[in-house]
Design a protein around this nucleic acid. Structure first.
Lengths: 147, 147
DNA sequence: TTAAAATTATACTAGATGGGTATAGTTTAG
DNA sequence: CTAAACTATACCCATCTAGTATAATTTTAA
């Protein structure tokens, strides 16, 4: 029940991209240094973001990366699913084969988890990168993560 | 971003325990057969539930497992954390060492993820086993998990 | 007091995943 | 045509996952 390291790096890289001035690009080495991310690992991760269509890349001299759309239009969910694939909280939600066969649709565990998964995805989709770069001050969620 | 198989088994085992009449116990073999769970794996998983204090066990002839409290008082969150340990969506939420050192508290990614994690835990805590055994009909969440 | 029914406690294993590195290739500006 | 950048695979090792194996302990009851 944890996001992997690539996703963490991707989120921080996206934060850098979201801060760029329009038309500007930033190269991977700069991101790697600023965010203390292993270069080769970052390159692979950035490719996932490009493939998912939330970042763009330009090769050659003076090339680099940028956001594919405005920061408001990119959410945490976009990044998480770009790196890790679609969120499936339980494999029975992905492959009905796992759902005990007998119940399929009317399994109460399945139903409850579907609701939780949906809530999780909505929560991730609520945060966009415009909000994030505006900064953490004035954050609407002050609840302790430990509660 | 997925619950592991042990958790899935635990949830289904707990569903069996929640259906017991007061004073009744059920042995692991019965659960394993009914829920198609590998016996030895189930035994280990049940031990986690016992250690976490949400199930009780009784050894010897006629022994077995039961809920430690009423079904209303056991939530999905209890089971998930009993099996997988505390939910930490990102390791930076667990170990500040990972949080880039420079920002610590004022990292916007950290803050947003803390909010998401909190929402996830609350959502898991909303579902208890009394509700689950009452059945999936009349479920309050009909949202498609794919949305 | 012994046998059988049950849980407990470790230890092990094959395969997958996670996090990272290496090597080689392609595009592009100048 | 060269250097700066991204692209594409392939590889590596440590940890995790899911499951199995072996042995011990507790309890009931014949």
């Amino acid at each position: 029940m944890q996001l992997n390291q690539a996703t963490d790096y991707a989120l921080r890289a996206m934060l850098v991209l979201a801060s760029l001035k329009p038309g500007e690009v930033v190269d991977a080495q700069t991101i790697a240094t600023r965010e203390r991310i292993p270069m080769r690992f970052l390159l692979r991760t950035l490719r996932l973001l490009v493939k998912a269509g939330i970042a763009t890349s330009q090769r050659g001299v003076g090339g680099g990366y940028a956001l594919a759309r405005s920061p408001e239009e990119v959410t945490l969910l976009d990044v998480v699913e770009a790196v890790e694939g679609p969120i499936r909280i339980n494999r029975c939600l992905l492959d009905p084969e796992y759902c005990g066969k007998r119940w399929a649709d009317h399994c109460p565990v399945h139903q409850a988890l579907a609701g939780v998964q949906s809530a999780l995805r909505h929560e991730l989709a609520r945060h966009n990168f415009a909000e994030l770069i505006r900064g953490a001050k004035g954050n609407q969620s002050t609840r302790d993560s430990r509660e």
